[in-house]
Design a binder for these strands. Sequence first.
DNA 1: ATGCCTCAGCTCCTGAGA
Length: 265
Amino acid sequence: MTTSLICRNFRMKLATWNVNSLTVRLPQVLDWLAANPVDVLALQELKLTDDKFPFEALAQAGYSAQCFGQKTYNGVALLSRTPATDVVRNIPGFDDEMARVITGTVDGVRVVGAYFPNGQEPGSDKFDYKMNWLKGLRLWLRDELIKHPKLVLMGDYNITFDEADMWDPVGLADTIHCTEEERYHLRALIALGFTDSFRMFTQPAKSFSWWDYRDGGFRRNRGLRIDHVLVSDALKAQVLSCHIDKTPRNNERPSDHVPVVLTLR
DNA sequence: ATGCCTCAGCTCCTGAGA
């Protein structure tokens, strides 16, 4: 019996968005999904427990959801049109009190949604925790990439790659999100076999994914690019585009972060 | 500037975010 190849004309869209409270931002998430019907949306900073997660509203919008919540802080979720399988919460092998990572397989792609630690200030306990967390993530991903070559790692990294990701490279040099120690870990992740999909393409100068609420940060475009979508080597040839969608930052009561969207063929 | 916003919560102040 002859099997014919299915003509694949399938484009897969994946996005990440730190919503800074899903309770406050749910209407904006639903509006955004209606206008941007992506296949996968990773959310960070839910700031709610699983019993308060809006499964019903998202199901009515056509999305299956896997959540990993926490009271007050952190909390992550994976929304997808096709239900995610083989779901894993946090980093296997790294003991963590906080809900920061959720992983699942959607349409043959291993998707890791992550809320990297903030780190507060170089030299602080929180900075040490961030360094340990980054090492734990890398050790786990090294094995995960072997099991799942087609992998997307996306979320709020709380790290800039270089000066192009900073509104004030001089004034912000060596401050949190911009230190050599943080960037060392980010490059070490890349060295596992990832590419920053955003920089595969020419982008507008001063492209950022986060702006401080204070002092007119967005209006003056004083921001940072700290939300990233990394694609594994096995997926790189399938990348069609990556862009930052700034429009939700104009909403009333916006999140301080905006979505980053990846399109695969 | 120990500041500026925004959010959650042991809620009318504080801690955390970035």
